[in-house]
């Protein structure tokens, strides 16, 4: 199975890179784009064959390494 893990900054955590992207978009003439936030997408293959155990494993990976709970949230998507 494959896991797609999206790591994003928690609400309220300043995202200077998102702000810079927002500024660059405005500079290119894109109007009406606001609240730009930058995150990470981590994709990986898992040997697990059922979704529940794949999700449990990805969850453990997020807690131990892939996300920092002090400032980040994560969302896991399991795809066959």
């Amino acid at each position: 199975m494959k896991a797609k893990i999206t790591v994003t900054l928690k609400n309220g955590v300043l995202d200077p890179q998102g702000k810079a992207i927002e500024g660059a978009l405005a500079g290119l003439g894109f109007e009406g784009a606001s609240d730009v936030r930058q995150g990470k997408l981590i994709e990986l293959k898992l040997d697990e064959t059922d979704e529940a155990s794949a999700r449990a494993k990805a969850e453990e990976m997020c807690k131990k390494l892939l996300a920092n709970p002090v400032m980040e949230n994560y969302a896991i998507e399991i795809v066959a």
């Binding site: 955590v13 300043l14 200077p16 890179q17 810079a20 920092n68 002090v70 400032m71």
Partner: peptide
């Protein structure tokens, strides 16, 4: 030290980038 949890909090990208 912050990543190990020996110190609280985290160090993020400088605010002015």
């Amino acid at each position: 030290l912050c990543e190990t949890g020996l110190l609280p909090g985290a160090l993020m990208r400088n605010a002015n980038l």
